[in-house]
Write a protein that binds this DNA or RNA. Structure first.
Length: 226
DNA sequence: AAAACGGGGGC
DNA sequence: GCCCCAGTTTT
């Protein structure tokens, strides 16, 4: 007799919690964005660091962030920055030319329309340049301690593989996860999926031998032993 | 719905 | 050398 979906969700969350909750958020095995956001409660740095992390390898984000914040740590400073200097500092991340322009642009919008402060509502955040659903929710969660579910490729791939949800778009994934994940887990579930996705449930070549969920994983069953 | 953006690490 | 990465924007 197959176990219920609710039970699967419970098993996954408790197991990932055991794996990662006790872990030091500043430890080397933690993700770079997690370290950056853990070191500061500054929504501006969370916003900038999250934009830098978009579609870019995690380790590169940390290097670029430190080089950028060493010189520009406020919207006012970054709004006046020389784009070439910003480009040089964030060079390790992908799309660095585009991002340098967008970073200065978003800083100017913060000054012109938001009094130099990062807004704390989804509706306002999503209007900012280079801010989509994922980045907006990251600012709410890591910058303001509010409840939201930032959806990246890991948060989409893993619950779908496990058969917890069946969604095509990030929007669908966010709604589906919001239904099945208890609120108390929202602050953690994003990073749990990211770390689990990097270590075990990789996009290609997943280490199913190190996964505790193969007994009910739809992906494991279909691909015939990993 | 699909393509474009892009440097750097891993294989 | 080839492929992929804590997405967003444009077509």
């Amino acid at each position: 007799m197959p176990i219920s979906k609710a039970r699967k969700v419970e098993l996954v969350l408790s197991d990932l919690g055991r794996r990662y909750l006790g872990a030091d958020p500043l430890a080397p095995d933690s993700t770079a964005l997690a370290r950056i956001t853990a070191e500061t409660e500054d929504p501006f740095k969370v916003l900038i660091g999250t934009i830098l992390s978009q579609r870019t390898r995690d380790e590169m984000t940390e290097v670029a962030s430190r080089q950028l914040f060493a010189r520009y740590s406020t919207p006012r400073a970054l709004a006046r920055a020389d784009v070439r200097d910003v480009q040089r500092r964030i060079k390790p991340v992908g799309f660095y030319r585009q991002k340098a322009r967008k970073l200065r642009e978003v800083s100017r919008v913060l000054l012109d329309r938001h009094g130099g402060k990062v807004p704390s509502t989804y509706e306002e955040l999503i209007e900012l340049p280079q801010v989509g659903p994922k980045t907006a929710n990251c600012v709410l969660v890591y910058g303001y301690g509010l409840q939201a579910l930032p959806i990246d490729t890991h948060c989409h791939r893993i619950p779908n593989r496990l058969g917890l949800i069946r969604t095509k778009t990030p929007e669908e994934t966010e709604k589906a996860l919001a239904r099945i994940v208890p609120r108390e887990y929202w602050v953690n579930v994003n990073e749990w999926f990211v770390r689990f996705g990097k270590e075990v449930c990789k996009p290609i070549g997943p280490r199913c031998g190190e996964c505790g969920f193969t007994s009910f994983c739809a992906y494991y069953r279909e691909r015939g032993k990993g």
